[in-house]
Design a protein around this nucleic acid. Structure first.
Length: 559
DNA sequence: GCCGTTTTCGGCCCGACTGTTTTCAGTCG
């Protein structure tokens, strides 16, 4: 899957053009990259119809199509190599520093030979930056702080943490009579898997007072921007919060605007222009007359669109599919660990928790014997566990299914005998070792596991750990084909460190007609509350209720 | 570099903020 690789290059090229002050090309390259990310496998598109087919994609014309072709054929883009040679700087890394953009990088390279963050830090510490034309003490200080922030958090916060923190701040602000409406905005509202900062939007008649109250939150470490409509603070937890306050009449338009994504906003504005209207954060305007603004729905409606859920607002404007999976559609969680293996809750405790979530069923899927460190179950202990589950099923008003999370060994075989797997209500199989096999071996390994008739679900199919471990090298398109053939269900693991499948792969599975299941992989009962994160990713991938099997009463689904 | 139910040329989303300035460039969302 070369889409992401090429998109990354196009983004970098865009920044390099911007750095050289080239007009409009950056815009074109970024747009092409945006399209690529959410497109089907670019190699398939190219194989199907060559250059012509590439050019038929929106935002991709003759020249970028040629560059894509060049990359597919040679693994390189000459012009990109040239650009990198011309200005050998790590643009991607440097522009992660708050306040540093392509133009700044260019100047710092020319004047001080700054190539990467390490150089930048040294230059700032030695006070080489402040004397430069157009720079100053404050800029130099801001750069140092920006680097410190990056070091601490790698610039991104998990959606899980951000969500909890944002709601805490909202609860705090809600106690003010001056706060009329309040909402999460930004990438957090879109439920991106990680967010750069937390955006909160308020409507009030007294913005000044709201801002003053906001900066007094005990967790605030530093206030670093206090305007009339916006205040930015750094929290002690190492993340930033932006609070914006607008009048009530603009709350909807501001919410739409500050929720983004940027591409979504650009596309909406173009629709507005085509209708002879103007859209900004204050409303939709016909000439000088404001025709919408108080609610988000009114904005979309003024543009003749149905309201679009925030999770669907990446890239091009796409309407909400019928039966998009919803947050209350899930009927059970099939990937729960207990004290039988690595978990910290008993089967009964986990089942009680599932009941409190109004689930119809819960699946116990403890680790199996290959994972000694997790006290994985062997065939004999699986039988013993069955007895306990049978007893609890008589006692509790919820259906407990017995499964396991078996290990897919390096050769694709399962670490539990088929005769024992057959006795279980369902079987999850996952990769927990030998992560570095070649693409071919890894793909064959997964395919073999999926072809085992006892295997129902593949857990965390790509194996990534956000910010720590890359995906395994697999041919995901091949996996989808085999999953469809064998009716194997792919897991959307809702744990915030995994979120695997991610939104993009979920969308591919939807298009391929492969069924998925959203599980929390809970190792303690509190983890079962993380289901919403998985649902959010499923929504971002445009999954409908029928794509997700645990929206069904599936006590018999896998038997 | 891309695009076109008014255009194959002339546009390309829009506004706020910051720090540096002396009227503005760069960055951000």
């Amino acid at each position: 899957m070369k889409n992401q690789e090429i998109a990354k290059i196009l983004y970098d090229m865009a920044d390099r053009f911007a750095m050289d002050g080239v007009a409009f090309k950056p815009y074109a390259y970024r747009k092409a990259a945006d399209v690529l990310i959410y497109e089907e496998d670019i190699e398939n598109i190219y194989e199907r119809g060559g250059l012509k087919e590439l050019e038929s994609m929106p935002g991709i014309g003759k020249h970028i199509a040629l560059k894509i072709e060049e990359y597919l054929k040679t693994g390189k883009i000459k012009q990109y190599e040239l650009l990198k040679k011309e200005t050998p700087v790590d643009l991607e890394e440097l522009t992660k520093v708050e306040g540093v953009g392509p133009m700044t990088v260019k100047t710092l390279y020319q004047e001080l030979k700054v190539k990467n963050i390490k150089d930048l830090k040294r230059a700032a510490e030695r006070h080489k930056i402040a004397p430069l034309f157009g720079f100053g003490e404050k800029t130099e200080q801001a750069i140092l702080e920006g680097i410190g922030f990056l070091d601490k958090t790698q610039g991104r916060v998990s959606v899980a943490i951000a969500f909890v923190e944002a709601n805490r701040i909202i609860d705090y602000l809600k106690t003010m009579p001056e706060v009329e409406n309040i909402s999460i905005a930004g990438s957090l509202r879109r439920m991106k898997e990680t967010v750069g900062d937390i955006d909160i939007l308020v409507s009030s008649k007294n913005p000044k007072k709201v801002m003053e109250y906001f900066v007094k939150i005990p967790e605030v470490q530093k206030v670093w921007g206090q305007g009339t409509t916006k205040t930015s603070v750094r929290m002690k937890g190492g993340y930033n919060v932006d609070l914006r306050v607008v009048p009530k009449t603009s709350f909807g338009s501001a919410l739409q605007y500050f929720t983004g994504s940027k591409e979504h906003n650009i596309n909406l504005r173009k629709i507005a222009i085509a209708k002879g209207l103007k859209l900004n954060e204050y409303g939709v305007f016909k000439g000088n007359k404001k025709i919408a603004g108080e609610t988000e729905e009114s904005i979309y409606s003024a543009l003749d669109l149905n309201w679009i859920p925030p999770e669907l607002r990446e890239g091009a404007i796409k309407p909400k599919p019928k039966n998009l999976i919803d947050y209350n559609d899930i009927k059970g969680d099939l990937h729960c660990h207990t004290t039988w293996s690595g978990g910290s809750g008993s089967i009964e405790e986990m089942a009680q928790k599932a009941m409190s979530l109004n689930y119809l069923y819960i699946g116990i899927a403890d680790h199996t014997k290959y994972l000694r460190i997790e006290n994985g179950l062997d065939e004999k202990r699986l039988k013993e566990q069955r007895k306990e589950i049978d007893l609890l099923n008589k006692k509790l008003k919820i259906h407990i299914l017995q499964g396991c999370e078996a290990n897919i060994l390096a050769d694709g075989s399962i670490d539990i005998k088929d005769s024992a797997l057959k006795e279980l209500d369902f079987v999850i199989a996952g990769i927990h070792s030998h992560f570095k096999l070649s693409k071919d071996k890894m793909t064959r390994r997964l395919v073999k596991a999926m072809k085992n008739p006892n295997v129902d679900i593949i857990s965390h199919p790509t194996g990534r750990i956000i910010g720590k471990r890359a995906e395994y090298d697999i041919d995901f398109d091949k996996i989808l084909v085999v999953a469809k053939e064998t009716k194997t269900v792919l897991e959307i693991n809702a744990h915030p460190a995994r979120l695997d499948l991610n939104d993009i792969n979920i969308n591919k599975a939807v298009k391929a007609g492969v069924k998925m299941i959203i599980n929390t992989d809970a190792h303690q009962k509190e983890n079962m509350d993380l289901m919403n994160l998985g649902i959010a990713q499923a929504r971002r991938g445009f999954a409908t209720k029928s794509d997700i099997v645990n929206t069904l009463d599936l006590t018999t689904y896998f038997q």
